[in-house]
Computed example of a mutant assay.
Amino acid sequence: MAMSGGKDDGEPMMEMNTTPLIDVMLVLLIMFIITIPIQTHAVKVDLPQNDNRPQNVIQSEKNTLTIDPQGQSYWNGSPIDDVTLRQYLDRTVVMAPQPELHFRPDPQARYEKVDQVLAIIKRANVSKLGFVGNEQYRAAF
Rank of each mutant, 00 (worst) to 15 (best):
33 I>N: 11
41 H>Y: 14
108 Q>D: 11
111 Y>D: 07
106 D>Y: 00
33 I>D: 06
56 N>Q: 12
96 A>K: 12
116 Q>G: 02
14 M>P: 04
8 D>S: 15
141 F>P: 00
97 P>E: 04
120 I>R: 04
73 S>R: 14
101 L>W: 06
69 P>C: 08
114 V>W: 00
76 N>H: 01
58 I>A: 06
120 I>D: 02
85 L>V: 07
56 N>K: 13
126 V>W: 03
116 Q>D: 08
80 I>V: 08
125 N>V: 00
114 V>Q: 01
55 Q>I: 14
48 P>M: 14
90 D>I: 12
41 H>L: 15
27 V>W: 04
125 N>T: 00
42 A>E: 02
19 T>Q: 14
125 N>S: 02
126 V>R: 07
139 A>K: 12
54 P>Q: 10
37 P>E: 04
95 M>Q: 11
55 Q>E: 13
56 N>P: 06
137 Y>H: 03
12 P>N: 11
11 E>Q: 11
46 D>W: 11
91 R>C: 06
40 T>L: 07
112 E>S: 08
56 N>V: 12
6 G>A: 10
112 E>R: 04
95 M>P: 03
125 N>H: 05
126 V>Y: 01
86 R>D: 15
41 H>I: 15
82 D>T: 12
94 V>F: 04
72 Q>P: 03
77 G>E: 04
9 D>V: 11
66 T>G: 10
11 E>Y: 09
87 Q>Y: 06
79 P>D: 02
121 I>F: 01
24 V>R: 08
24 V>W: 05
102 H>N: 10
65 L>P: 12
48 P>F: 13
68 D>T: 15
133 G>P: 04
104 R>K: 08
16 M>P: 01
130 G>I: 11
53 R>T: 15
59 Q>F: 11
32 F>V: 09
96 A>G: 02
86 R>N: 13
135 E>C: 03
62 K>Y: 07
12 P>T: 13
107 P>F: 07
51 D>V: 15
52 N>W: 03
27 V>M: 05
36 I>H: 08
8 D>Q: 15
37 P>Q: 03
